[in-house]
């Protein structure tokens, strides 16, 4: 807060700075608030002002075979990719957490690289490599590449959690007679789980938002929701897209709340320890 004795330029600066930042925050959220109401418009165009409200675009979204199939596909591909990325990523992070690991930073660089390599390159490469194997136009091919794209997020979050893990807890547990399995389930898991879950959520969001690889690898039967939206925005942008967008925004709110809850939980556990 501004002290009462602040001079005029100080006051002006203080308020200018605030206004600037509030505008930036507004810039960040305004698109989301702009598109949601349009999904309830009865109009056939995505324009304001909204003259009449209706749920017809949600009805269109939920009864159109293409949209529902895309939604279904997204809910097939994303969980499968998340499962693979999370299991393999967690195992690898546990291995990498060992102090004696050879060439650790190089390996970490490779494991994280799917995050920085442009997706177009991954998409075209996957197409070239998978086509002779018969994996293009299949769910399997799509799931495998989406999983690869999700791996860095799992490795980063789980590694970060493991770095803060006190290995003396394992020794303490063992010294009190717990077997390795009990130690893992009762001591390691509760402390590491938030990292794994948030990594999994990142991996899920990555697959759930992925267009480019899908563009190259998927046949019409494997169209995912973002891919369907990409086609929709490109051809004619209708309020059905606003309905799909609103559903996706609700989805990201749910993801965000879960993550915040996890973060809060981890923080509480840490402060309790201290």
């Amino acid at each position: 807060m501004l002290p009462a004795y602040a001079s005029l330029p100080e006051k002006a600066w203080f308020w200018l700075f605030r206004i600037f930042n509030v505008l930036v925050l507004l810039f960040l959220v305004s698109p989301l608030f702009a598109i949601v109401p349009l999904s309830f418009s009865a109009d056939s165009f995505l324009v304001y002002p909204i003259r009449a409200f209706s749920l017809r675009w949600y009805e269109a979204f939920l009864t159109d075979g293409e949209w529902t199939r895309a939604l279904m596909n997204s809910f097939i591909v994303a969980p499968a990719a998340t499962l693979i990325a999370t299991v393999l990523g967690t195992l690898a992070s546990v291995g990498l957490a060992s102090r004696e690991f050879p060439a650790k930073s190089l390996l970490m660089g490779i494991l994280v690289s799917p995050m920085v390599v442009p997706v177009v390159i991954v998409g075209v490469g996957a197409y070239l490599f998978f086509a002779p194997l018969g994996l293009t136009g299949s769910y399997l091919g799509l799931v495998l590449v989406h999983a690869a794209l999700g791996v860095p997020f799992v490795v980063i979050t789980v590694s970060a959690t493991l770095a803060g893990f006190n290995t003396n807890l394992i020794r303490a547990s063992a010294s009190m007679g717990a077997g390795p399995l009990t130690t893992f389930m009762k001591v390691v898991m509760p402390l590491v789980a938030p990292g794994i879950i948030s990594g999994a959520l990142f991996a899920f969001a990555t697959s759930f938002d992925e267009v480019v690889v899908t563009l190259f690898l998927a046949a019409p039967e494997q169209m995912t929701l973002p891919r369907q939206m990409f086609g929709g925005i490109k051809e004619n942008i209708s309020p059905a897209i606003a309905a799909a967008a609103t559903i996706l925004i609700l989805f990201s709110v749910a993801l965000l709340l879960t993550l915040e809850w996890l973060r809060g939980r981890a923080e509480r556990m840490r402060t309790r320890k201290a």
């Binding site: 960040l28 959220v29 305004s30 698109p31 989301l32 702009a34 598109i35 349009l38 995505l46 324009v47 969001a205 759930f208 938002d209 267009v211 973002p226 939206m229 990409f230 925005i233 942008i237 897209i241 606003a242 967008a245 996706l248 925004i249 990201s252 709110v253 993801l255 965000l256 993550l259």
Partner: peptide, 17 residues
């Protein structure tokens, strides 16, 4: 919140705006 929202959603929203 925007960080977690699909890129496609945000592009669609910017077209609207």
């Amino acid at each position: 919140l925007p960080f977690w929202t699909s890129v496609l959603v945000r592009v669609a929203a910017w077209i609207v705006l």
